[in-house]
C-alpha cells in the first residue's frame, strides 16, 4: 500500500516519464496560443470575464515592468546634500516648498469653511408618491383604499408600537426595517457597521423624515461610540450624522458616509 509521500518517492527512485520535459515545455508554449484563441473566440459573458481577467493580468505586468525600469534609472529623487556649506544667499532657495504648503493649507481651510454645509451627495433623484407608497385595499368589501404601505426601507425607533391596525394609515413593513448601516469614515477610510439612532432629514420630503424612510441622500444619525471618536474637549462622541450613499431598496443594506 503506498503511504505518505509515495509520489515523490517514486519520482526519486524511477524518475519521470521520458517525455516529461518536452510535454511541459509544449504545454507552456501552447498557453499563449490558448489565450489568443480565447480572446478571439469567446463571446458573451465568458468573453467579458476573460477580458476582465486578462486586463488585470496585463495591468499587473505593466506595473511590474515600470518598477523594473524605475529601479534602473539612476539618481532619482533628491540629490544628496553636499558636504560643503551653502552661502547665505542660497539658503533661501530651499524654502519655497514650505511657503507653498502654507498657502495651500490656508486655501484648504477656506474651502472647509464653505464645506461646512455641504454634503457628499448634494443632489438626489426625486421619488414620486406612487413609487414610495403602495395603496392597500381595506374595508369589508375591500373597496376602500386609504391605507398606504411604504415600499422603501425605513428606520423605526426602538420601542415602536404600531397603531391599532384598523386606524393605521401608513404601514412600514417590518421586513423592510433597517437597524444598522455600514458607515465609512472618509478620512480614516474604514467602514463599520453601526446602529442607526434616528433619521435626521430625508431630502425628498419632511413627511418621509418623520416616517424614517431611508433613501439615497438621507441624513441619518449613527451611534459612533464603537469608533472611539473624541471631541476637542476630550469627551467621547456618541452620535454623529452620516449620509446614505446607496439605494437601500436595491441593495438590501444601508451604506453611508460619515459627515465630519
Amino acid at each position: 500500500m503506498p503511504q505518505n509521500e509515495y509520489i515523490e518517492e517514486h519520482i526519486k527512485k524511477y524518475g519521470r516519464r521520458l517525455d516529461y520535459e518536452e510535454r511541459t515545455r509544449k504545454r507552456e508554449a501552447r498557453e499563449g496560443h490558448r489565450i489568443a484563441k480565447n480572446a478571439q473566440k469567446l463571446t458573451g459573458f465568458r468573453a467579458k470575464m476573460f477580458a476582465k481577467k486578462r486586463y488585470a493580468e496585463k495591468a499587473e505586468m505593466r506595473k511590474k515592468i515600470k518598477q523594473h525600469e524605475q529601479s534602473k534609472v539612476k539618481g532619482s529623487g533628491e540629490p544628496a546634500p553636499s558636504s560643503e556649506a551653502l552661502p547665505a544667499y542660497l539658503l533661501d532657495r530651499q524654502q519655497p516648498n514650505s511657503a507653498k504648503a502654507l498657502s495651500t493649507s490656508i486655501k484648504q481651510k477656506r474651502l472647509e469653511k464653505a464645506d461646512k454645509f455641504s454634503v457628499p451627495l448634494p443632489k438626489v433623484r426625486g421619488i414620486s408618491e406612487d413609487e414610495m407608497f403602495k395603496a392597500l385595499k381595506s374595508g369589508k368589501r375591500e373597496n376602500k383604499s386609504w391605507k398606504r404601505m411604504i415600499t422603501k426601507p425605513t428606520f423605526v425607533g426602538e420601542g415602536f408600537t404600531r397603531r391599532p391596525v384598523k386606524m393605521e394609515r401608513i404601514i412600514r413593513p417590518s421586513a423592510l426595517r433597517q437597524k444598522k448601516a455600514n458607515v465609512t469614515h472618509p478620512e480614516l477610510g474604514v467602514t463599520v457597521n453601526l446602529p442607526i439612532l434616528s433619521v435626521k432629514k430625508n431630502p425628498q420630503s419632511p413627511m418621509y423624515t418623520q416616517l424614517g424612510v431611508l433613501t439615497r441622500g438621507t441624513i441619518i444619525e449613527v451611534n459612533v461610540s464603537e469608533l472611539g471618536l473624541v471631541t476637542a474637549g476630550g469627551k467621547v462622541v456618541w452620535g454623529k450624522y452620516a449620509q446614505i450613499t446607496n439605494e437601500p431598496d436595491r441593495d438590501g443594506t444601508v451604506n453611508a458616509v460619515l459627515l465630519v
Binding site: E131, K134, T151, P173, A175, L176, E247, D249, R250, D251, G252, T253
Partner: peptide
C-alpha cells in the same frame, strides 16, 4: 433568508434583480 424577505416586497423587475444581485 434576509433577501428572500426583502424580495417579497419587490416592486419591479429591476428592483428584484438588483436585490438578487446583492444577495
Amino acid at each position: 433568508r434576509d433577501y428572500v424577505r426583502l424580495l417579497k416586497f419587490g416592486q419591479s423587475l429591476f428592483q428584484c434583480k438588483q436585490l438578487k444581485r446583492a444577495a
